[in-house]
């Protein structure tokens, strides 16, 4: 074997090694964390933990308001952010004229997606709680969360729309379809799996956020379920945060159990979305 082949093989080997290390490192950290959380939570994870309200006694405390609050909040957030976000993406990608305004919007969207979530909390507090007067309830929280994930939804949806080849659109136009018929019946179905991926990512982000909701006024201690759209509420991450900050060791176990519930909720939601996407994708060939 010549010298240069040897070197090339060596380079290839070490590159593969690097790649494996890059995958392994986060996986190991994640597994260690999960195991640690899993061990801590094992005593607390039972039905009564899911169905009880928080309490001063750690062993009686449960996560019910947080879990229900999170589900309500996510449902409301998705119901607002997804249609608006996809609609905005369709407008920007399929209808808006290219030009300096489009470029400006594009740059701003990318920047907005990177703005720290606490800023959205402050905006939500001013806009939804004070100016519009929604109060410190579920709706104000969901509006704030919707604002937070909107740029991500728009960016991901635009990306998905952009991957639909021009030739496919032209095929529809050549049959005498209007722009709307083309977009709604040909382009969107093709882009749908990609749009759904963006939706999964953004909703997952919203599930884990606590900071903007604290600003908007989610409560840390709550002993009832939200009974309306403006009702006070809490969410899983806030409940977990609250338990973590208690001095007693038992509350830390509660926090661990809360984290497991949060992760499982997230995985279930993602799993559902991925299942839907795969079902739709099965019918798609290029």
């Amino acid at each position: 074997m010549s010298h240069s082949t040897l070197r090339r093989k060596l380079a290839e080997r070490s590159f593969i090694g690097l790649c494996i290390a890059a995958v392994a490192l986060p996986l190991i950290i994640l597994i260690v964390l999960m195991v640690d959380v899993g061990i801590d939570s094992i005593d607390r994870l039972n039905w009564s933990f899911l169905s009880s309200y928080p309490s001063r006694k750690a062993e009686e405390a449960g996560i019910r308001p947080g879990l229900v609050g999170s589900v309500y909040l996510i449902a409301l957030t998705a119901a607002m952010a997804l249609p608006i976000g996809v609609g905005a993406a369709v407008y920007l990608e399929e209808y808006a004229k290219r030009g300096w305004l489009a470029n400006l919007i594009e740059i701003n969207l990318a920047n907005l997606a990177g703005v720290p979530s606490i800023i959205y909390g402050l905006l939500g507090l001013k806009l939804f709680v004070r100016t519009i007067g929604l109060g410190r309830g579920l709706l104000a929280g969901a509006c704030t969360m919707a604002l937070l994930i909107l740029p991500i939804v728009i960016l991901a949806s635009r990306e998905a729309l952009r991957t639909v080849p021009l030739s496919i659109r032209e095929g529809a136009y050549a049959l005498g379809a209007t722009r709307w018929q083309t977009v709604s019946q040909v382009v969107l179905p093709v882009a749908f799996p990609g749009i759904l991926t963006g939706a999964i990512l953004s909703v997952s982000r919203a599930i884990g956020e606590a900071a903007p909701l604290i600003v908007v006024g989610a409560l840390a201690y709550i002993a009832f379920l939200p009974d309306g759209i403006n009702s006070p509420f809490t969410v899983l991450p806030i409940q977990i945060f609250n338990w973590v900050s208690r001095p007693q060791r038992e509350f830390l176990d509660n926090a661990a159990a809360g984290i497991v519930v949060l992760l499982v909720t997230m995985l279930l939601l993602n799993g559902l979305a991925i299942y839907l996407r795969n079902r739709l994708q099965k019918r798609r060939y290029w």
Binding site: G171, A174, G176
Partner: peptide, 16 residues
């Protein structure tokens, strides 16, 4: 375009 149909250079069936 409903009266003037077109077949393109590259086949472009609708993928879904």
């Amino acid at each position: 375009r409903r009266r003037v149909g077109m077949v393109f250079q590259k086949p472009n069936p609708f993928p879904t």
